[in-house]
Design a protein around this nucleic acid. Structure first.
Lengths: 158, 158
DNA sequence: TATTGTTATACTCTATAACTATA
DNA sequence: TATAGTTATAGAGTATAACAATA
């Protein structure tokens, strides 16, 4: 067997494993939350509003790393269902502060709970000690790579 | 602070970290190989052909988990550049066996080398012993979750 | 009649840039 | 004139299903 073919048959690197497993985890999560009739992007926005309510759409767009125009559609889709509110700032009427409604907060908690089930399903083959070791390794990489905690980088041009 | 808000401020689970880091790694890899004028999907196909040459497009589509119609465009894009060859089977002229050309094999090796640089960049914050521990944890999850080794699950409806 | 590969069509997602309303 | 948000438009990527060639 020629050297080139041998090399291509080699197992791919850890970064590839990470990408493959990440895509798998994301797809499985999307399936779970589809039962709640929300998309991953909507979920991330709900999470972000819950974590820091009252921000303007511009500020939120910057936090998530998305063009403001994309945020409009996401906010619309949640506002139409009464999950999110735009509150106009009386001082500067250009600003729309984002808040969860009571239903939005309730849904966010349901999603959080689905997330825990999802976590267990993905990590079921690891012991508890291994899970925390994995978690700390991943957290270190995420910090080193400059990822914003709790924000999926998929909002940035993918 | 109410309980609901506290919970939503909690760090997300490991599966979320995995998804976020995987998307990040995939995006950085896409940037690197853009210099070679190939996309991640093309890269995966080149890899698959290199690993198991001579397969029909149907067989390849099944291996990658993609509709055969999607494979046509990918193969076209590589064949137009002289990287991949369709060889018609004289016995059954419906079948097109996929092979790399010499240039295709050379490009596949360049990509492999870019992949190693990419790996180092993503994992630079970990010691060597930590990298192998991470690798073995990820490999176990991948196997438990039924991922085909060396194949990115993104070929399946995303 | 069944199968391989291809093409045609339509749909989803997204970014860019023009536009409005407020300041 | 500058900024927040919105709308319009166009492009990329993909799946579904119809189709042609071959068996």
């Amino acid at each position: 067997m020629p050297a080139s073919a041998r090399r291509l048959d080699d197992p791919p690197g850890s970064a590839f494993l990470l990408a493959a497993l990440g895509a798998h985890a994301a797809a499985r999560f999307a399936e779970r939350i589809a039962a709640l009739d929300v998309t991953p992007a909507q979920t991330g926005l709900l999470r972000a509003i819950a974590a820091t309510p009252g921000q303007s759409q511009q500020a939120m767009a910057q936090l998530l790393g998305t063009p403001p125009s994309r945020l409009v559609g996401l906010v619309d889709s949640l506002a139409d269902r009464g999950l999110v509110e735009r509150r106009r700032n009386p001082t500067d009427r250009r600003l729309h502060a984002l808040h969860l409604t009571a239903e939005g907060a309730a849904l966010a908690e349901r999603i959080e709970s689905v997330g825990r089930e999802h976590d267990d399903a993905i990590l079921r083959s690891l012991e508890h000690s291994e899970r925390s070791r994995l978690r700390s390794l991943l957290a270190r990489i995420a910090e080193d790579q400059g990822l914003t905690p709790g924000v999926h980088p998929g909002y940035r041009r993918m």
